[in-house]
Each structure stands twice: as C-alpha cells, then as structure tokens.
C-alpha cells in the first residue's frame, strides 16, 4: 500500500513538470478537496489493515471495513478526475477562482469527466480481477470469480470509455485523425487479446498484453490532452534544458533499484515459501 502511494507519485511529478501552469491552478481552486486526498488515503490504509487483520482472524466482519475503504478510494479517484479535467480548461479555472478563492470550488463540468472517471474505476476493477484470478489460480472458485470480474469489468470499462469518447463532441473528429487512433486501436486489440490469453491461463502473456494496452491508453490520453489544450499551451515549446548527467544518474539508479528489488525478493523467498500477503 505504501508502495502503491510511492509509485503513484511519479506520474504526478512529471505532470507537474510539464503542465505547471495547468496543474497547480486547478488543484488550488479545489485545494481543500485536493488536500483531503491525503487523510482519505491514510484512512483507507488503516481500514484495509483492519480488514486484513479481521479476515486473518477468521472474522467475516472484516468486510465491513471494506465498504468505507472503497468509498475513500472512490473519493480520491473522483477528485483526481475532476481536478485533472479542470486543468484542461484554463477559462473554467479562471471562472471558478473568481467565484471563490478559499479552495472550495468543485469542478461543475461533470460531463467532462464523469465517463472518464467511470472508465478508470472500472479499469482498476478489471486489473484487480486479473490479479485476483492469477493469485488464486489454483483455487477454481477464486479463479472463476477473478475471471468474471476481469471479463465483465473489461466490458463495462470499454462501454464507459466509448461513452467518454462520444461525450467529447467536437474533439472526437480531430482525435480520430491524430496518432491517438492507432494507440487506441492497438490498445483495445491488446486488451481483448489479454482476455483471450487469460482464459487460456497463459497468465504471463496476458499480463504483458494488459500492461501494454494500459500504456497505450495512457498515450491516447496524452494525445487527447494535447488536443484539448491546443492553442493555450504546447509542452514542446516549454523548454526543459536537458540535464544528461542527472538523467544518467536516474537511469543508473533505476536499474540498480530494479536489480536490488529482485535480489531482495529472491533472498526473501529462497528461505521459505511463506507469502507476504499482508504487506504494509
């Protein structure tokens, strides 16, 4: 969990690097909602911890902790969606700021982000189903449940994604003519391929396909963001002086980190087979 939060910070860092003039204003206008993400995540963490603790003790009451935790996660993702969507509309930010400067403004243009949010939540559910099925592959019950979530989740996420695309209106045309259409098409094909492989229990390949399709979705999203911001902003014009030495240090440390993580995991599992399921 702590690891997830830490991993999640990286994209935020780069978004803030490339779009400071969009990201900060949007989060400042909704400052309180944005800031509440932190306590929400802390709460979710302890709820999950409590749930895991109860379940380990064999108490079914553990699931009672899960609902509020789920609500917390939904809150976090909703704030992200609304703020990031606002970041693409500088005029909207200006209007909202004129209305109030206390950081209590909520992005009212729900039409812009409702489907996208739904798409992401369902996408997360799909990935969750994928992993649940893989981890419980030996247990027929768990596997079929995971399979169901994976398949239905993907269908629902696809539907929400389609609805989002249709809700783009005027932007849809330009999007279809941009590079994004290729990323999107290949991404969808890979998702379906992943589903197929998954049913055949070729988990590694399915995972790779799923990951690649997620990556392509991110690329699509990036292209779309550029389209929306066209005219107000172009990141290519935003010169970042190349810092090759520092970049090299990063690459090296990244490689070393990857090696170390694998090395440590091998040390850990070579001695006994116990699984670290209740990871902190």
């Amino acid at each position: 969990m702590a690891a997830t939060v830490t991993l999640g910070v990286a994209p935020l860092l780069f978004l803030q690097l490339v779009y400071p003039l969009q990201m900060y204003p949007a989060s400042i206008v909704s400052a309180w909602f944005f800031l509440l993400i932190i306590p929400a995540v802390i709460l979710v963490y302890y709820l999950l911890y409590a749930a895991a603790f109860c379940l380990k003790g064999g108490k079914p009451a553990g699931t009672g902790w899960l609902w509020p935790a789920l609500l917390g996660l939904l809150y976090v993702s909703l704030v992200y969606s609304s703020v990031f969507s606002m970041a693409e509309h500088p005029d909207l930010i200006r209007q909202l700021y004129a209305r109030g400067q206390g950081g209590f403004q909520w992005n009212p243009a729900a039409g812009d982000y409702a489907f996208r949010w739904l798409h992401m939540v369902l996408g997360a559910l799909t990935v969750g189903g994928f992993f649940a099925g893989v981890l419980g592959a030996k247990d027929a019950g768990i596997f079929s449940a995971g399979k169901k979530i994976f398949a239905y989740g993907m269908a629902a996420a696809g539907a929400a994604g389609l609805a989002y695309l249709l809700s783009l209106g005027d932007l849809l045309g330009p999007l279809m003519r941009s590079r994004a259409i290729w990323a999107l098409t290949v991404g969808v094909v890979l998702s379906l391929g992943s589903l197929h492989l998954y049913f055949k229990r070729r988990f590694l390949l399915a995972g790779v396909a799923l990951f690649a399709s997620l990556l392509l979705m991110v690329i699509t999203r990036h292209e779309l963001r550029l389209l929306v911001l066209q005219g107000t902003f172009d990141p290519a014009a935003w010169r970042v002086a190349p810092q090759w030495a520092a970049f090299l240090i990063f690459l090296v440390s990244f490689a070393v980190a990857a090696v170390l993580v694998v090395y440590m995991l091998r040390l850990f599992f070579s001695f006994s087979g116990s699984d670290p399921e209740n990871a902190i």
Binding site: T6, L13, Q243, A246, F247, F250, S253, F254, A257, V261
Partner: peptide, 12 residues
C-alpha cells in the same frame, strides 16, 4: 526533476 526521480527509485 531527475534528482527527484532518482530519489524516488531509492524510495522504492
């Protein structure tokens, strides 16, 4: 930015 990115790998 790259120093921060480096720090992030240490964090992981």
């Amino acid at each position: 930015v790259w120093m921060w990115a480096t720090e992030w790998t240490f964090f992981v």
